[in-house]
C-alpha cells in the first residue's frame, strides 16, 4: 500500500480509551478504544448504526461519553467544550454538509479562518486580515474560485461538500474528522476528493468515515472497522476484506463493498 503513507509513522496524536456512550439507555458506543498516529489518514467503516458518527461526535465534544477518555496530543480533552476542543486543533466535517448558507463563499472561509477567537479583539479586525491570497488558493483547490462572492446557499450539493472541506482547510486543524465526505458526489468529484485527501496526509491527521470501498482503497493507510459500538477489526484494506468477522458483521447489508 502506500507509497503515499508519508508521515504515518509519527507518534500517537489521538487516543480513545474505553469510550462508552449511552442515549437514554441505548448503548451507541460500548468500550471503544482507538489510537491514531500523527499524519495518518484513518478510515473508519462499519455497517449503518455502528456508531461511527457518534465516535466522531465524542472526539469533537458534541457528545460527552458516559465513561472513558479522549486524549489529543497528550492532553485529555474529554470534558472540554466544543470550541475549546476546536482550539486544540480538531476540525469536523458533518454528515449533512453544514456551511453558512446566507454568507458568501469568501465569508464562510473567513469565519473558518479562526486566528483569534475573542469577541472584543475581533471587533477591530476587518476584511480577511491579509489572508485573501490564502483563501483564493483554497477556493481554487476546491474549484470554487469563480464563486467567491456567491451565497453558499446557492451552491450545488457537491459544491457545498467541497466548500465545507475548504473550510476545514482554512481552519487548518491538526486533526480533521470527515463524516462521509463523498456522499452525494459524482464519480469525478469523488476521484478529486481522493486526490486532495492524499495530499493532506502527513500535514494533517485525518479520520474519514466512509461507505464507498473504492474511495477507501484510494486513500487509506489503515482501516478501523466498528460494529455495534465496538472496534471489530483494524488493518489494511486487504486484511479487512478477507477478515471473517468483518464479513459476518456486514451480512445482511449487502457485503462490505455494497455498504
Amino acid at each position: 500500500m502506500p507509497a503515499n503513507a508519508v508521515g504515518a509513522t509519527g507518534g500517537t496524536i489521538l487516543e480513545l480509551r474505553d469510550i462508552t456512550v449511552e442515549f437514554s439507555g441505548f448503548v451507541a458506543i460500548a468500550g471503544l478504544t482507538l489510537d491514531v498516529h500523527e499524519g495518518e489518514l484513518r478510515c473508519l467503516i462499519g455497517p449503518n448504526g455502528a456508531g461511527k458518527t457518534t465516535a466522531l461526535d465524542v472526539i469533537c465534544g458534541k457528545v460527552k461519553p458516559a465513561s472513558g477518555k479522549v486524549v489529543l496530543g497528550g492532553r485529555e480533552i474529554t470534558r472540554l467544550e466544543e470550541h475549546q476542543i476546536a482550539r486544540h486543533g480538531v476540525g469536523r466535517k458533518f454528515q449533512v454538509p453544514s456551511v453558512f448558507r446566507d454568507l458568501t463563499v469568501r465569508q464562510n472561509m473567513e469565519v473558518a479562518l479562526c486566528r483569534a477567537p475573542g469577541v472584543l479583539g475581533n471587533l477591530f479586525r476587518f476584511g480577511n486580515s491579509g489572508a485573501s491570497e490564502q483563501l483564493e488558493k483554497l477556493a481554487e483547490l476546491v474549484g470554487l474560485e469563480e464563486a467567491m462572492d456567491v451565497a453558499a446557499g446557492a451552491l450545488s450539493h457537491g459544491q457545498t461538500q467541497w466548500l465545507e472541506i475548504a473550510l476545514l482547510l482554512a481552519q487548518d486543524a491538526r486533526l480533521i474528522l470527515m463524516d462521509e465526505p463523498t456522499a452525494g458526489m459524482t464519480a469525478h468529484e469523488t476521484a478529486k476528493t481522493a486526490e486532495l485527501f492524499n495530499r493532506l496526509k502527513g500535514r494533517h491527521t485525518l479520520i474519514v468515515v466512509e461507505h464507498d470501498m473504492g474511495f477507501i482503497k484510494e486513500i487509506s493507510d489503515i482501516i478501523s472497522v466498528m460494529h455495534q459500538g465496538r472496534l471489530l477489526a483494524e488493518g489494511t484494506v486487504r486484511e479487512i476484506e478477507t477478515n471473517a468477522e468483518v464479513r459476518a458483521a456486514y451480512l445482511g447489508s449487502g457485503g462490505i463493498s455494497g455498504a
Partner: peptide, 27 residues
C-alpha cells in the same frame, strides 16, 4: 463589518457550526 460582526451572522445561520471552528458562541 468587523470579524465579530461576521461571526454574529455565522451564528445566525448555524450556531453549532461556528462552535467547531473554535469560537465561543455564547460570548
Amino acid at each position: 463589518h468587523s470579524k465579530t460582526g461576521l461571526i454574529m451572522q455565522a451564528i445566525r445561520d448555524d450556531e453549532n457550526r461556528v462552535r467547531y471552528f473554535g469560537y465561543d458562541v455564547a460570548a
